[in-house]
Write a protein that binds this DNA or RNA. Sequence first.
DNA 1: CGTGCCAGGTGCCTT
DNA 2: AAGGCACTTGGCACG
Lengths: 288, 288
Amino acid sequence: MTVISVHAPSHREALWELESAFERGDLITVFGRCTVSYAGRAASELGVGDRLLILKPDGAALVHTDEGRTPVNWQPPGSTHHAAVREGRLRVRSKRTNPAETLLVRFERVHQLSAMSVTGGRDLELHGSEEDLRTRVLERPELIAPGFEPVSTERETAAGPVDVFGVDDAGDPVVVELKRRRVGPDAVGQLARYVAAVRDELTGDGEFLADHEAATADDSVRGVLVAPSLTDRAADLLADRGFDHVALGPPADAGESVDALADDSDDSDDLDDSNTTAGSGSRPDESA
Amino acid sequence: MTVISVHAPSHREALWELESAFERGDLITVFGRCTVSYAGRAASELGVGDRLLILKPDGAALVHTDEGRTPVNWQPPGSTHHAAVREGRLRVRSKRTNPAETLLVRFERVHQLSAMSVTGGRDLELHGSEEDLRTRVLERPELIAPGFEPVSTERETAAGPVDVFGVDDAGDPVVVELKRRRVGPDAVGQLARYVAAVRDELTGDGEFLADHEAATADDSVRGVLVAPSLTDRAADLLADRGFDHVALGPPADAGESVDALADDSDDSDDLDDSNTTAGSGSRPDESA
DNA sequence: CGTGCCAGGTGCCTT
DNA sequence: AAGGCACTTGGCACG
């Protein structure tokens, strides 16, 4: 692990450090006064201001202001960074193809440049995703319906993969769509497409079927939307389609474990300080 | 504009600088070896490694590795940052409510800490959005259909706002849904919901209508999906519903202006260097 | 504040 | 490479 940091470098110096950092495959941050231009899927211009530019060895580029989680401009991984001094000013350009996109950062002044060699794990262990919800449903199928038996997951249909496919106690096919959070009308539409696809498939989709067979199949494919909750419109749509809602979310409510982290509270000797942003400005403290 | 930067500070020093930076409302970067825990809408654990932590005065917190455009962990704006030294180690916690979420970064070592006061424009001028596409449609309504006349934009319906609503040369209502890029089946579903809502509205939705009136209204509400292109499934669905597709994207193909940025090529005297990431590793250069 | 919807969405996986 | 979809999606505008 190494960190190189230069304070208020000349543009030439900055270029030199950038070159070296590129070669080393470092993670780079450049803080300075700059303008940003982007052209590709869309196009944008950003006037002069202080920004933090992050250049990653995988080709990602991020331009951050002092606000927001989302970078004001960026380039995805796989792009190619290129630095140059032009008219005495540092310029960083990041390009990619497919789609063709270019990000250009023109520095008026470089306040600081750092380059860091990064090591260590990148793999995040995440809980509470839709996959966890699926596991929960498969472990306790009765949550879907009294006699529900899962047959397959990610079952392919003409409309796309069905999250969980199975049969109910009457032997009728059941299409289950899982959502880890409260859903809107779009999720009902998604479920409807799957149900229609399975129905068409089971009725032979164009092949000849006796009327009563088709009618039976038509009604017999059930649709179940599993989600913690629904918006009103979604509920209406769901009712219109004759589908069911099962109120269920990812297991082991993450909300509880929040406390474990939040209750990092005081049983200790050391220093601390807080910065309250959301509330009353940046007045410090509120905690012990 | 000021930059404060400390190299390999002690945990106490780091805390001190963090406190000061919080008070000043600075943009902060902390590079160090750490583990990260998150609990809230989901929950996650990230093992030890070198990461770049960014703390913004608006409450946003980002944890970046050397890969990816998306932070490996984060907290949205509006959160409250809190720093402390615990068991001799720097800890940064970022909390928010609604939903309750906590991000905890435990530093094993702090390689570098910087605090920067940020000034300057944050407003991005973006071209090529859906709004630009709408403008284009309103300026040249004939692109939708020979005699199309727009009546309103963002017209409210029971299913949500219709992008552009108007009448065709036969006086029949037309529902237009705009998409700035190639679309899938979901967009067709969206259009279908709007068309159904308008149809219900015009047929009186439950009120009595003579059969022929209802039938007329039924067929007469047209649906038009405006997008550069469709996937096959979307096209099929669109045909099933009897809707139309108009192949149109945001104006002034951004693709061309890419060249303006890309053709930053050489008519100059100065230094430059490039870092090819996507291709052949990090061998430098390829340009003049 | 919730609902709905766009986004230069990004990222992941399958065909 | 394109399609389909989840995401701690984020962000905005509106009721």
